[in-house]
Amino acid sequence: MRESKVMPGFSDRLAAQAEARKALLAKFKPKPTVQAVEAEGAFETTAQKKARELEEVRARRAAEKEAQRLAKEKAEEERRIAMENDEELMLQLKRDERKARKAAAKADARAKRELKAQTRRAG
């Protein structure tokens, strides 16, 4: 008996099934990928990128800190020079120091008197 193309026979169905199975398995085979030519440092891993960014942040913060320190030093030096040049301010500082010294001596004397008075009362 002759097989017709309209109604495929058993062998045709088996051949079709084998082709379908090959096509299905071909999907799972790894395909060759295009490998980019890696230049020096062209690609960096996530860890490398994170480390680089962290280093940039640290460097920027250190630079900011140094700038603040220099500005503070400069302002302190200018204030010191201005104080040395201002005679009236120097006289005022001397007066304030003398007043503080006299107030401390007065407080010590008062404390001695009070202690002496307490010992007289108690004894």
Rank of each mutant, 00 (worst) to 15 (best):
R69C: 08
R80N: 06
F10M: 08
Q118V: 09
K22M: 07
R110D: 14
R61F: 04
L70N: 09
A67K: 09
A59I: 10
E66T: 12
K99L: 10
R120H: 05
E64P: 00
A122P: 01
M90S: 10
L89T: 01
V6Q: 10
E3N: 11
R80K: 13
I81D: 09
R61Y: 09
E84H: 07
R101T: 12
R79C: 03
S4P: 00
E56V: 02
R121N: 05
A62T: 09
R110W: 06
T33H: 04
A20L: 14
E56Q: 15
Q118M: 12
A42F: 13
V34I: 13
R52E: 06
Q92P: 00
R69Y: 09
A63V: 04
K27M: 02
A26W: 02
R95P: 00
K74L: 11
T119Y: 06
K116I: 09
A20T: 07
A16C: 01
E73Q: 12
V37F: 11
R58L: 15
E76V: 04
K29D: 01
M90Y: 00
Q35K: 12
A82I: 02
R69I: 06
A71W: 04
R58A: 15
Q92H: 05
K50D: 04
L14P: 00
A62V: 06
A75W: 08
P30W: 01
R58Q: 15
K94N: 04
E56A: 11
E78L: 03
E76A: 13
A23M: 07
P32L: 02
K106Q: 11
A18Y: 01
A75E: 14
I81H: 09
R58I: 11
K102F: 09
N85A: 08
A23E: 10
R60N: 15
R101Y: 11
A20S: 11
K5H: 09
T119N: 10
A75H: 08
V34P: 00
Q118C: 05
R52H: 13
G9D: 14
R79H: 10
K116A: 10
Q68F: 03
K49E: 07
Q48Y: 08
E55D: 15
R61G: 05
E53M: 11
L54P: 00
M83V: 12
A36R: 08
D96G: 02
Q68H: 12
A16P: 00
A16N: 04
A15R: 14
L14F: 08
E87A: 12
Q48R: 14
T45N: 02
E56R: 10
A71R: 12
G41I: 01
G41A: 05
Q118D: 13
D86G: 00
D12R: 03
L25D: 08
V6I: 12
A23R: 06
N85V: 01
L70P: 00
A39W: 08
E53G: 02
Q92E: 14
A100G: 03
R60L: 15
R113L: 10
A62F: 10
